[in-house]
């Protein structure tokens, strides 16, 4: 599936993530606790002037991997209802790149399922980010090591 074909059933979006839509997906009278995790683009003391992050992905595999990951989560927390969106493209500082909502009958499962999904995303879902900095430089982010400098262009 390529970008142009992304549809509303996809786990990917290029538009700002709609939290209302995600919350509606998991809403259920049987669920008494809902946990929302947002990952947002950061420009902290260690980021050296990040203005935005450009997210790219192996989109077909992201869809497949999210399917497997959510099936694993359902095995662990059968009563939980989980929805997730990952945003791609250039995302400015402060905006969300990922949103995960987990609703369950009780809060413990909601927190656990939500935590499980974000940790598995970090491990399994093929998404990459390039930091765009104030000085015009671009840096591929390698969570396993140091950032890799990339010559600025255009």
């Amino acid at each position: 599936m390529r970008n142009a074909e992304l549809n509303e059933m996809s786990y990917l979006t290029r538009a700002p993530i709609s939290l209302d839509a995600l919350l509606a997906e998991v809403s259920s009278p049987a669920c008494g606790g809902t946990c929302l995790f947002l990952g947002t683009v950061r420009d902290g003391p260690d980021e050296h002037g990040v203005t935005a992050i450009e997210y790219s992905a192996y989109e077909e595999m992201v869809e497949a991997e999210f399917g497997r990951l959510l099936a694993d989560a359902r095995d662990r927390w059968p009563e939980a209802r989980i929805a997730v969106r990952h945003r791609l493209g250039t995302i400015p500082v402060g905006e969300a790149s990922i949103a995960i909502v987990a609703a369950a009958p009780h809060r413990a499962q909601a927190f656990e399922a939500c935590r499980y999904v974000i940790e598995e995303v970090k491990r399994r879902v093929p998404v990459w980010k390039k930091e765009l900095r104030v000085d015009g430089s671009e840096i591929w982010v390698d969570p396993s090591g140091r950032p890799i400098p990339h010559p600025a262009h255009g």
Partner: peptide, 10 residues
């Protein structure tokens, strides 16, 4: 076959 740089999603 896809060759994947270190995953950095989320």
């Amino acid at each position: 076959v896809a060759l994947l740089p270190p995953i950095a999603g989320g």
